[in-house]
Nucleic acid binder design. Structure first.
Lengths: 351, 351
DNA sequence: GTGAAAGCGCTAACAG
DNA sequence: CTGTTAGCGCTTTCAC
């Protein structure tokens, strides 16, 4: 908690304050404040003078000072676990659009998928006294989330948490996994393997959905899962693991799109074609899946909706409209593309 | 059971202050402050008492208040033009790593490639009184940058700006474009077209690099440029435009990777194969280019280095070590993959 | 070592 | 409408 504090010479050219503006416009401090906040009851003449002074001085209200007295920042903090996953681009869009409507500014953070760094990022946002916290697929411990809840409204996106204090918005991972598995089964596959998301947010439920779907379809004997991650490398390694076993699966359900792409890479290196030899299904339906060269069948979750709903949860709490947890679940759909097809008539043996 | 104030409009929770900690630990306010800042000269006994009180109260220093008195936030603001482009993931990594070393926190923002929104995002960071501003490929007007410079150190990444007040870190777009064009020429191409980045940051220079390289190679008669953008759709539309003209180019140099991918999509739809019928070169060498299904020849610019250098520029300014502009240019390299090859013996005609 | 006092730039509540 | 007066939570003197 104690931060390293190197005391350095104070920098800075003196930035103009509200007092400078008042003097320049020859009015009172409070009048300037009123103009800035757009309050009623300022004569057009004075308003004009103030605005001009602001312009000339390149004055900018100090939201720090404002926040201190109002004890609210009108800032929403968003911790994003992985900036490299285009899925979060959608989530961010949803958040931003809604935030603008509601008069909040949004500031992002990331811990680059490293739990400790993510915790630091969250802590940093909390010290900033954000009015609300949105955690997009955080990998931190539940206790971290609980601690945050004690101070500020929190909504967790795309992760199933046992923390009871926060709101959450997720897609229905069980249903999504079922869509993926059933799709493969309908094509005639029985040996459907799963590369999971390791310790990533939501990975456990997605895995559980796979297991349940397999059992429901009477395929429990063909259940094969290997550990992966929500990254390309995770998918690559997971697929390599699958390739080292026998018999080979004819279909692979990967934890998410980038994981699926990593898996496809491993398959290709092994001389297996998709979908002729092995079908592959991803999750998220990111822009990656739509690339014609990849054309990945994928479970779609609606990132922008998830982001928007998350923001609405936070907003309800901030406004005091609600103080009991809300858990929103968005239904996923399946988008079928070229990476899945019927299983090969004569499954290919390696080598 | 967390005790929370229920339904109280805007300002709400009684967050503990430094005074609460002092009372609980039975010491003075200043003593607590000293402990928090890790100052010397506090008895171990007192320090212990303070730390325990902090723990028990779930106290968190209010950086807002701290910033107000210190007149510096120790926050660096980063405006990122496009969160969907994985290239910026690299840039962010570089920034974060260095920032942590230097004891700064980093907060991100985006205007989603819309100039007005980007300006608002920058303004928002400025109102927050960030100690430094990093603009990653901003699309705003130079005047916006100049206005920001008057208040805080600014570094612009990956865009050539005529604003003289800010530092900048770019890759050498002229050289990069030349690498791309020469590579195609060496393979035997003469009809090398360019899909540019429209009004995107750095697009103009990349285009200029293309033009110069073509002339230098004596290919001025084959110069063809169409307008695109730094997006998949931009590339798609640009390629469609090329396809509507005659003669068809045998190689395309696209403004960046996602643009190239969009172009490949259009080519594929038209029944043209890459590289058998048309070679394609991208720029950025993002993770997308490395995907085996895409395997895009691309000019590599080192995003993490660019981010790190940007942060160092800012830091020098903040520390008062330098007050004249520094312009850093990073040399790009070319990564050759499967999307480029010799031109077809008999160029394919459409339909 | 400790505690009291003076602000940082702003808003809010009143009195003129 | 204006000007004055209190703070917001913290750091920073400067006495003790």
């Amino acid at each position: 908690m104690p931060r390293r504090n190197v005391v350095k010479p104070a920098p800075s050219q003196p930035e103009p304050t509200i007092l400078d503006v008042a003097r320049k416009a020859r009015v009172s401090k409070s009048l300037v404040s009123m103009v800035i906040r757009g309050e009623e009851g300022v004569s057009p003449k004075n308003r004009e003078a103030v605005l001009q002074a602001i312009e000339e001085l390149n004055y900018r209200p100090n939201v720090i000072a404002r926040s201190l007295v109002q004890r609210r920042t009108r800032i929403l903090g968003v911790m994003i676990s992985d900036l490299r996953n285009p899925f979060f681009g959608d989530v961010v869009s949803g958040i931003q659009m809604r935030a603008e409507d509601l008069g909040y500014r949004v500031l992002f953070n990331t811990g680059e998928r490293v739990p400790n760094l993510e915790e630091a990022a969250i802590e940093s946002l909390l010290e900033l006294r954000v009015d609300g916290l949105i955690l997009a697929a955080p990998r931190v411990d539940d206790t971290v989330i609980e601690r945050a809840c004690r101070v500020v409204p929190v909504v967790v996106l795309n992760r199933d948490t046992s923390a009871t204090c926060s709101d959450s918005v997720t897609n229905d991972n069980l249903a999504g996994a079922r869509l993926a598995v059933e799709h493969c089964a309908n094509l005639g596959h029985t040996r459907i393997a799963h590369i999971d998301g390791g310790s990533g947010a939501g990975a456990g439920v997605r895995r559980e959905g796979y297991l349940r779907a397999m059992r429901q379809l009477g395929l429990e004997d063909s259940i094969v899962t290997v550990e992966g991650a929500f990254t390309e490398n995770g998918g690559y390694l997971g697929a390599r693991e699958l390739l080292s076993r026998s018999p080979l699966p004819t279909a692979i359900f990967a934890a998410n799109d980038i994981c699926a792409i990593g898996a496809m890479k491993a398959l290709e290196e092994a001389g297996l074609r998709t979908p002729a030899d092995v079908s592959v299904v991803g999750y998220d339906n990111t822009s990656l899946a739509t690339l014609p060269q990849i054309s990945l069948t994928s479970v779609q979750q609606f990132g922008a909706d998830i982001g928007r709903l998350g923001l609405e949860c936070i907003f309800e709490r901030i406004e005091g409209k609600r103080s009991t947890p809300r858990h929103e679940v968005v239904a996923p759909t399946l988008v079928v593309r070229a990476s899945t097809g019927p299983p090969p008539a004569k499954p290919k043996a390696l080598r």
